[in-house]
Computed example of a mutant assay.
Amino acid sequence: MKTAMRNKEKDKLSVIRLVKSSLQNEQIKLGRELTEDESITVLNREVKQRKESLHEFKQANREDLASKQESDLSVLEGYMPQQLTEEEVEAIVKETITETSASSKADMGKVMSAIMPKVKGKADGGLVNQLVMKHLSN
């Protein structure tokens, strides 16, 4: 935050302040210090909100607001853990399906509940869901 202030990066500073506020609100809500996983969850929530807003602004042809959301997203993604590639996620999906002995789409919930803690903050839930669906339908 101090670096953004020194460099007079107003957009970056405002995003950092919003995230810091969200983290503090979550800390107050829980009544204790946040763990690293909880902090990542808050960051994921912020990223997801920006992506949803971006989608809505693009549908409404509001390029001015969409570009603001894109710049906010790029700042937020700099603080997120390194994302897994699709191949890495697919390997985790295959491994988890084998571990849980899942064989049909009826086992989707069991597989998803086993996978999500492994990829929390490192992969998009939609991608994970799509890959699980693909492998369980084969």
Rank of each mutant, 00 (worst) to 15 (best):
D124R: 01
A123M: 03
M116D: 11
S74W: 00
S104K: 10
A123G: 06
L84S: 09
E88F: 05
S67Q: 10
V119M: 00
V119Y: 05
V93E: 09
V111E: 00
K118I: 13
K105V: 13
V89K: 10
K58Y: 11
A102M: 06
Y79T: 03
S101A: 13
P81I: 04
N61D: 14
V119F: 06
S67N: 05
E56L: 10
E70H: 04
L65G: 09
E63S: 08
G78Q: 09
T96R: 01
K118P: 04
K120D: 06
K110T: 14
T100L: 07
S74P: 08
M108E: 10
I115E: 03
S71C: 05
A66N: 04
Q83Y: 03
K58A: 12
N61T: 05
T100P: 10
T100A: 07
K94G: 13
T100S: 09
K105R: 12
D72A: 15
T96P: 02
T100N: 10
A60L: 14
V119N: 07
S104E: 01
A123H: 00
E95M: 06
L84Q: 03
S103A: 12
Q82W: 00
M108A: 13
A66T: 09
V128Y: 01
T85R: 02
S113V: 13
K120I: 09
D107T: 00
A114W: 02
A106P: 02
I97L: 12
V128P: 06
T98F: 09
F57A: 12
V111Q: 03
G78W: 13
S74M: 10
K58T: 04
D72G: 11
G126I: 07
E70L: 14
D107H: 04
D64P: 10
A123T: 04
K122I: 01
K58I: 13
M108K: 14
E99Q: 07
M80Q: 02
S103G: 15
D64L: 13
A102Y: 12
S74F: 09
S103K: 06
D64E: 15
G125F: 07
S104V: 04
S101K: 07
I97R: 08
G78N: 03
G78A: 13
Y79C: 01
R62D: 15
L127G: 00
A66F: 12
D72S: 12
K58P: 08
E90I: 12
P81L: 07
R62N: 15
K58S: 11
E56G: 00
S113C: 12
S101G: 09
Q59D: 14
K118D: 07
Q69R: 15
T96E: 08
M80A: 04
E70W: 00
I115G: 09
M116A: 01
E56D: 15
Q130M: 15
K120M: 03
S71R: 03
M108Q: 12
L65R: 06
S103M: 08
L84I: 02
A91I: 06
G121I: 07
A123C: 00
I97G: 12
S67C: 08
S113D: 15
T100G: 01
E86V: 15
Q83D: 03
V111W: 02
E56R: 04
L84W: 04
P117T: 09
S104T: 15
G126Q: 06
S71E: 03
K110W: 06
M108Y: 15
K120L: 05
N61V: 07
L127W: 06
S67H: 01
P81V: 08
